Computed example of a mutant assay.
Amino acid sequence: MRLIIGGGTLAGKPQLLFVHGIGSVRTTDGELREWSTSLANGARAAGHADLVSALTRSWAADTRFANYSELFCKKDAQGVADGVATEDLPLLLGLLEEMTRELEHQAGSVNDRRSVEITAKARAEIQAAIDPDVLQAQGPLEVVRRAVNGVTTLLQLPGLRRASQWTSGVQLLPVLSQVGRYLSRKEPDDAGLSLDARIRERVLSGLDPSRPLIVISHSLGTVVAYEALHVYSGPVPLWITLGSPLAMGALVLQRLAPQPPHTPAGVERWLNFWDRDDIVVARPRLERWMNPNASGVVPVTERTDTRGIWTHTATKYLAHKEVAGPVAETLKSL
């Protein structure tokens, strides 16, 4: 297979990279199988049944699942309450406040009164947790308890009530804290390498810049991929972001490196997908917040809704023909 770039020719089998987001510790082989299978199902739905076996068996591309999940397992963490360390609270609470404010705005823009009521209640509960007097007088356990209440309320949003992955704030809160932990640029290892740097190193490991790379990233993985692709020297014919929090204002967008936020230089096409019931996506239209690269590439956003199930899961997005179709088409063109 050959890809023509700027008058030259790159030879070799394409690469397909999956970059996961928030969640518990994962098994690399199992996740690779699940993501590949979901992508193949989506390709079939998009009219590319001839690629199903090629996707599930990595014939169409050298496929890798970049698993950094165990790097979030803290050793000797201090002040932990319900799985959240005291030092993680400021960023986590800021993330929750911005997330609920944007969700409330979205619900109001479509006159969804029930969702407005739920998000307004959740935001009030989270603002109560942010109150500095609470931390000083009652301690981090009370702050976490109030934050848990707010997240549990959010999970009552229509479309999430029958969610099968996380059913309460107690389960979801520690997972959401991973976004803040990555962006805090702390938690150095024995060699002084920060958590975020170790994660990007894990993602970029083994890639061959002489061959075309397709990246499919999800959730926090879209933030990781954004920063990793800015230091990657090879061509990226297609980058797909799923359920991305990249545009979440001061908590994410303004903390990205490099600044100002712009499409990585090697990316030739960027497709962004979101589901209205995905609570992690507060500002879905990334093109409103991202500057183009030198080639003029900016994200193109499309909404893909999955009703009645937990939507912040990569495999739910990958099974959509709108998501898998462009991947299949790109692979066939290389």
Rank of each mutant, 00 (worst) to 15 (best):
W289Y: 13
M290Y: 07
E287T: 04
M290I: 14
P260S: 13
E268N: 05
R276I: 02
N272R: 05
F273H: 10
R269T: 04
S295W: 02
V267T: 11
R283E: 15
R285M: 07
W274D: 06
R285T: 01
L286Y: 06
A265G: 04
L271P: 11
R288W: 04
M290V: 10
P264F: 13
P261D: 13
A294S: 14
E287A: 15
G266S: 00
D277R: 01
G266R: 05
G296L: 11
R276F: 08
R269D: 15
D278G: 00
N272L: 01
M290P: 01
W274N: 08
R276H: 04
V280K: 01
D278R: 01
V280R: 02
D278A: 00
D277S: 10
R276T: 11
R288C: 10
R285H: 14
V267D: 13
D275P: 05
P292T: 09
R269L: 15
P284V: 06
G296H: 15
F273A: 09
M290C: 09
G266H: 02
G266D: 04
E268R: 05
P264A: 08
P261I: 12
P261Y: 05
P264G: 15
A294M: 10
A282S: 14
E287R: 06
A294E: 14
N272W: 00
N272H: 01
E268Q: 12
P284S: 12
W289H: 15
A282H: 04
T263A: 11
R283W: 15
G296Y: 11
F273L: 04
D277Y: 06
P261F: 09
P284D: 08
E268H: 04
V267W: 04
N272M: 01
V267S: 13
N291I: 00
R288T: 10
I279C: 14
T263W: 06
H262Y: 10
P284C: 14
D278L: 02
